[in-house]
Nucleic acid binder design. Structure first.
Lengths: 331, 331
DNA sequence: CTGAAAGCGCTTACAG
DNA sequence: CTGAAAGCGCTTACAG
């Protein structure tokens, strides 16, 4: 900027005024400055500007993982931000499974929201987060009071298990998600509720504690399926884990859905092309992203009227990984 | 930071030293400062730090669009950056089809690279870009001299057209991509090369100028297919456009591949689930992202040895949208 | 070992 | 209408 000021023979203050279109600069000076900017290819530094200004018109999105569903979230966010005047900065850490994971979201939320961003979306944080600027969480931690957008995990999980019950299953295993997340807890609640409502006891030994990561499900599935009285169906709290169950069953020589029915949760793209295709509960990550961005935008501009906790409907998607227990595999 | 300094009874300089782990701070002071940091939940501002320092250990990625393939690029980039010590900032503008599109990449590259990032990846820019810090372009503009990673568009397009020729097609239409991009030009070159090599003339009226956007392909496809001497096959320079050709053919009552064969380029996820599934040229966007990040990382640390223009192999994926001309549709 | 001071690139009252 | 100066939150020579 000082280069431009020198070239145009004015002060940096004047250059700043021209760049930001402020009033009170003569036409002649404006022309001179514009010419210098053009000639030098000057572009103001995002960092310096944001340090000085209170408002940046940049929204942030912090995510610790990067998977198929994350991409859908991004698309929804971008759609909501289109022509809004807000740009988006996505901050992703490079240490996916490293030591930085714990509390990572909070740390980076703070680092960004001090100055760079006017507000942030945080995707599936491990713990509750807070910030001086508005935050909307997609899939909040349990007991979080931060504004959030989330799928109706309870209803979705209930529907999933009721689908299995309707098929005639009575011994249904459950592989849970990361306990600190509300979604994990509610999906387990849905599992329990469906069984209880059907007059069935909840067998604690059929509940295994995963963490949403596919890898975590492998040993758990093996345990459940190695038992003499193995369940005839398994409901996993995420598609990633359900897909792993499919793999384990395959290794164990169990046919799906002949010997074992499997239901997941999320409806990630991979679940549609799996072999067999996976019955699952659809939560539109696109919608989640879209609504989160819409809420954040209004929170930032101060005109949000709706509830600060938004729950979006889910939908059971029946595919080929579920069938009545003991049914013979198709051709 | 000044809060921390006050709480710990030291100067901000000392706090900074502790935060950054610099030598020359007594154990007692360090403890005091750490305690204050912990108590106040202090986190240094990314913006302020990057403004003062030359190195930020943050890499940038600038993209004007956000589509399925972009997500694959991200995954590749993240994988390459894993445990590298670099974080990633993705900058996406909210004005996808708005007035900002022209020169957008360059503008934001400049705004970021001044201070925030140590280097940037730019995805499919419309024009050539330059920066004071290292840049790697994925799918560069024509005649770009910036370090880049790109698929072997020439070989891929040649293989696509040779596949159609092998099936017996002689009148093959081509829907081109955005002319300013090297990929568009090379895909057209491949189309021409394959025809010429087969001893066939290149019929200019069978070449239509699209811009990679699906929407741009609709009227072009209609033009090509409305002709009395319509082509028996169309090769589109992107899957998005090819999918649009499928749609147009459907509206026109033409069956694919019975009346018309269609080949795309990219192998986006949607092409596998299209009806019929799309024959296309696979370019691994994941690989493109991975290699671009690897190159950028080394460029930033100054230890890049390889060529600054990298070309990755492509692979023809034959699906159900291609068949010999005039063949009757299957059951 | 520690602090006062300068400065990174901007913006914005405050004077003139 | 324009400029000198202060300051956003940090880091880093420079003194002590």
């Amino acid at each position: 900027m000082s280069d431009v000021a020198r070239a145009a023979g004015v002060s940096t203050a004047t250059v700043s005024r021209v760049v930001n279109g402020h009033y009170g600069v003569s036409a002649g000076t404006t022309t001179k400055v514009r010419a210098a900017i053009e000639r030098l290819g000057y572009e103001s530094s995002l960092v310096a500007t944001s340090l000085r200004r209170s408002r940046t018109n940049v929204l942030g999105l912090v995510t610790h993982s990067f998977q198929s569903y994350t991409a859908e979230v991004f698309k929804g966010v971008m759609e909501a931000l289109r022509r809004s005047g807000f740009d988006l900065i996505i901050y992703a850490n490079s240490d996916l499974y490293g030591t930085y994971s714990e509390g990572w979201e909070q740390r980076h939320l703070t680092r960004l929201s001090g100055t760079l961003t006017d507000g942030c979306i945080v995707v599936t944080p491990w713990d509750d987060v807070q910030s001086r600027t508005p935050v909307v969480v997609i899939d909040p931690a349990r007991n979080s009071t931060t504004p959030s957008v989330t799928a109706d995990n309870l209803a979705g999980a209930t529907a999933a298990v009721e689908h299995l019950l309707g098929l005639g299953h009575r011994r249904i295993g459950f592989i849970a998600g990361r306990a600190s997340m509300a979604a994990a807890w509610l999906r387990e609640e849905g599992y329990r509720a469906a069984l209880t409502r059907a007059g069935l006891p909840v067998d604690q030994t059929l509940i295994a504690g995963g963490d949403f990561n596919p890898e975590s499900a492998a040993p758990l599935a093996r345990n459940l399926l190695d038992r003499a009285d193995r369940p005839t169906a398994i409901f996993a709290a995420s598609d990633g884990m359900a897909l792993m169950v499919l793999e384990v069953a395959n290794k164990l020589g169990l046919s799906v859905p002949g010997d074992l029915s499997v239901v997941g949760f999320d409806n990630i793209p991979e679940s549609a092309v799996a072999e067999p295709s996976l019955t699952t509960v659809d939560q539109s990550m696109y919608q989640l992203g879209y609504e989160a961005a819409r809420m954040l935008k209004s929170l930032v501009t101060g005109d949000w009227e709706g509830p600060r906790e938004m729950v979006l409907p889910t939908r059971l998607v029946v595919r080929n990984s579920t069938a009545p227990p003991g049914s013979t595999p198709g051709p």
